[in-house]
Design a protein around this nucleic acid. Structure first.
Lengths: 207, 207
DNA sequence: CAATTAAATGAACGTTCGTTTAATTATATG
DNA sequence: CATATAATTAAACGAACGTTCATTTAATTG
């Protein structure tokens, strides 16, 4: 199975990544063996080492990759500047929509942090802080402009992100509410939590 | 080291519990060995089996014990009925204060759920739902009475609990803010998130 | 069509795992 | 103080772990 030099996108590589993501999310990094991952791919354990140097690199690849994708998607979702209210609502909608469809990635990005070796841990932490700063800056700008009642932007930012990400703990497709309905509930709660009560001040941009 | 029949509160029992709690919180259930726990207690691995039948029972004991303590403390904190506003504020203050001082228990009660065998998992889930119902009922009553703008009490309840519990991910004693200051920020955000904007409608009961 | 090389196999490595067991130690009770 | 019994140790069990390696298989390249 020779392959053009420089090419890296083998089928097995992607399947190992996918299997590891599922299994790590379901059972936890430490509880999943390389043999389990290999079995899910339909391959022997040793074959994984043709694509990843070790188990740790597999975890690091998943977590760092997830954070980079998140930041890129976030940047693209909020390119054009707007008022703090509009930017906050845009952030809430982006965060919910993005996270609800990546339950496994979000789960391990939070749960398996402690299983990262120091270098990988630092990289993920840095990326996470960069994402958190997006919201914090929106809150700070809104507070400065007097449109938000936020007295402490860092704390409010952490509170809002925790609230939004929490949707992943209970949401399942096919449930009582659609993603759009959930989005509306969270938008309203978040906007009100920072002091925006008038729906007219909010932007409606349902997909 | 014989001991009165029926007595169960040995020193080692408690120390094993404490060591397991710390180690599970720090490294995760699957990543911690019985030998590590024993070493932290200053005992051999086999000695643990005089107090717990196996590793799983140790985890189940910690999680079920935590949930039972939480529910008992919550019941005691909200014994006297009051208005929805007062009850909600009381719940927020209780939740933050209780969780902030039990970081390890809260962490494993969420992270190690998947490592519980089915029977233990069901028990913890039942207890968790009983706790969540406390908040949900407050929100439902407030919405019925027209004092909360909550359109969906179950979702709002999950959102608020996620927001509050999230404080554990960043709070450390000796930081920029005191527990009381943090409590005030969260009380304000939560009350506003359900539509209560006037501070006069809120009860101030700082400890 | 050879030569090359990436990919996969299957067995093995040393280590660690949770748990068990026989023997020993220590404590409380009659 | 003697006895009963709970607690602990030290060693051992089989199983599973992450990883390595010689070898085989299969696809690409000149």
């Amino acid at each position: 199975m020779a392959r053009t030099a420089g090419s890296v996108g083998t089928k097995t590589f992607d399947e190992v990544r996918k299997a590891a993501l599922q299994l790590f999310a379901r059972h936890g990094y430490a509880a999943v063996s390389m043999r389990q991952i290999a079995a899910q791919v339909g391959v022997q354990a040793g074959a994984i080492y043709n694509h990843f140097p070790n188990k740790q690199a597999l975890l690091a690849d998943l977590l760092i990759g997830h954070m980079r994708n998140l930041i890129k998607a976030c940047d693209e979702a909020g390119i054009q500047p707007a008022s703090p209210q509009v930017e906050l609502e845009r952030f809430v909608r982006f965060h919910i929509r993005y996270h609800i469809d990546r339950a496994d990635e979000v789960f391990i990005a939070y749960m398996e942090l402690r299983n990262l070796e120091p270098d990988n841990f630092r990289e993920v932490q840095t990326l996470r802080q960069r994402y958190e700063r997006v919201l914090r800056d929106i809150l700070r700008d809104g507070a400065k402009a007097g449109v938000f009642e936020t007295s402490d932007a860092p704390v409010a930012g952490m509170a809002i992100i925790a609230m939004l990400t929490g949707v992943n703990t209970w949401f399942r497709y096919g449930g009582r509410l659609s993603v759009t309905q959930i989005e509306e509930i969270y938008v309203k709660m978040v906007m009100q939590s920072v002091g925006i009560f008038d729906p007219a001040l909010r932007e409606e941009e349902n997909a």
